[in-house]
Design a protein around this nucleic acid. Structure first.
Lengths: 113, 113
DNA sequence: TTGTATACCTAAGAAACTTATGTAAGTTTA
DNA sequence: TAAACTTACATAAGTTTCTTAGGTATACAA
């Protein structure tokens, strides 16, 4: 995760879980592309951050993996487990709460639903 | 900073700079109280996080310090320097940009002005 | 055949916290 | 009046999470 701002520390898992919740299954490289595309090239989710995060989420029972071969190259598709699904929901709630608290602290108008 | 969520990592400087921008001068303990009060006791800005952060901001030329004694106890009042003022503004812009990018990634409705 | 895109990976170091202390004066309460 | 809490500062060890910098390998375009 790189964008000249410290703010993105801590949101990596939230992003991963949410993207998987929306798209069903994704592989690592696809996630980096998706993030870059969605944020108009502003956020570069680096592989050095992503892969260790995926491995940790898998070790924690949040993700299941299936390997598929495309053009002789392996892809590791990740999917949310049951535990991962509820974690995704919780992380989203936490994020909204975070925005709401920060809006109070920084005197912003909160308006995220 | 403690609230059972990793999200608050990275926003500490933003909060400090913004509070000082709004209130002119504040001392450390006052900042922790202000954060607790504003967030309805939800966010506990721990001293182990705050004091090193204040010292670093001072070392970086963002803050000026003056010591005042109240009831025989010393208070270190912090104020934004010129550099600190522009840093505060930049941090706020960065935070709004962060919210906007995250809203895209997490499919939220962005509405912070 | 050189560069770019795809697709995975790890390891050293830095940064920013948490947790756990420590000091000391003033204030409340049993 | 002793104990407990609040005010007000501080540091230091350890953890987590990321950055930076590498590495492997296949496919395709110039």
């Amino acid at each position: 995760m790189k964008s000249d701002s410290q703010l993105y520390k801590g949101v990596l898992n939230t992003i991963i879980l949410k993207l998987l919740q929306e798209h069903g299954k994704m592989y690592g490289y696809e996630i980096t592309k998706k993030v870059k595309e969605t944020t108009d090239q502003q956020i570069n989710l680096t592989e050095g951050a992503l892969y260790p995060a995926l491995h940790k989420l898998e070790a924690d029972g949040m993700l299941d993996v299936t390997i598929e071969h495309v053009d002789n190259r392996p892809r590791k598709y990740y999917r949310l487990t049951k535990k991962g699904k509820s974690a995704a929901t919780i992380k989203m709630e936490e994020f909204k709460e975070f925005i709401s608290q920060m809006s109070l602290l920084l005197n912003l108008k909160p308006a995220i639903r």
